[in-house]
Amino acid sequence: MRTLSKRSEFLAANRGLRFPMPGFVLLVRQRGDADDAMGIGYTVSKKVGNAVTRNRMKRRLRELCRAALPESGISGADHVLIGRPGGNDIVFAELGEQLDSALTRAAKKLAR
Rank of each mutant, 00 (worst) to 15 (best):
L4H: 00
S5N: 12
S5A: 15
K6E: 13
K6F: 06
S8Q: 11
S8M: 08
S8E: 14
S8R: 14
F10D: 01
L11H: 10
L11K: 13
A12Q: 13
A13L: 08
N14F: 10
N14I: 04
N14M: 10
R15A: 14
R15M: 05
R15C: 08
G16Y: 04
G16K: 02
L17A: 11
L17E: 14
R18V: 10
F19M: 08
F19K: 09
F19P: 11
M21A: 14
M21W: 01
P22E: 02
F24R: 13
V25I: 12
L26R: 08
V28T: 06
V28S: 12
R29Y: 06
R29D: 04
Q30S: 13
R31Y: 08
G32Y: 05
G32V: 06
A34N: 12
A34R: 12
A34M: 08
D36P: 15
A37T: 09
M38T: 11
M38K: 05
G39V: 01
I40N: 05
I40V: 15
I40W: 02
I40Q: 11
G41R: 01
Y42L: 12
Y42P: 04
T43E: 02
T43D: 06
T43G: 03
S45I: 01
S45H: 08
K46A: 15
K46W: 01
K46I: 06
K47D: 06
V48C: 13
V48N: 07
G49R: 01
G49I: 02
N50Q: 11
T53E: 13
R54C: 06
R54T: 07
R56D: 11
R56Y: 11
R56S: 14
M57I: 07
M57Y: 07
K58C: 02
K58G: 07
K58F: 05
K58Q: 10
R59P: 14
R59K: 08
L61I: 01
R62I: 02
E63K: 10
E63T: 13
L64K: 13
C65L: 00
C65F: 08
R66Q: 07
A67L: 15
A67M: 11
A67P: 00
A68Y: 03
A68S: 09
L69Q: 00
L69P: 01
E71Q: 11
S72A: 12
S72D: 12
S72K: 09
G73I: 05
G73N: 00
G73L: 05
S75W: 05
S75D: 15
G76C: 04
A77F: 04
D78P: 04
D78T: 05
H79F: 09
H79W: 03
H79D: 01
H79I: 03
H79Y: 07
V80F: 00
V80P: 00
L81T: 02
I82P: 05
I82W: 01
G83T: 05
G83M: 08
G86S: 07
G86C: 03
G87C: 12
N88I: 06
N88L: 06
N88Y: 07
N88Q: 01
N88P: 15
D89V: 10
D89L: 15
I90M: 10
I90Q: 04
V91M: 10
F92P: 09
A93N: 09
E94H: 15
G96K: 15
G96A: 12
E97A: 12
E97Q: 13
Q98F: 09
L99T: 07
D100L: 15
D100T: 11
S101K: 14
S101E: 14
S101Q: 14
L103S: 11
T104S: 12
R105I: 09
A106M: 13
A106D: 15
A106E: 15
A106H: 14
A107Q: 09
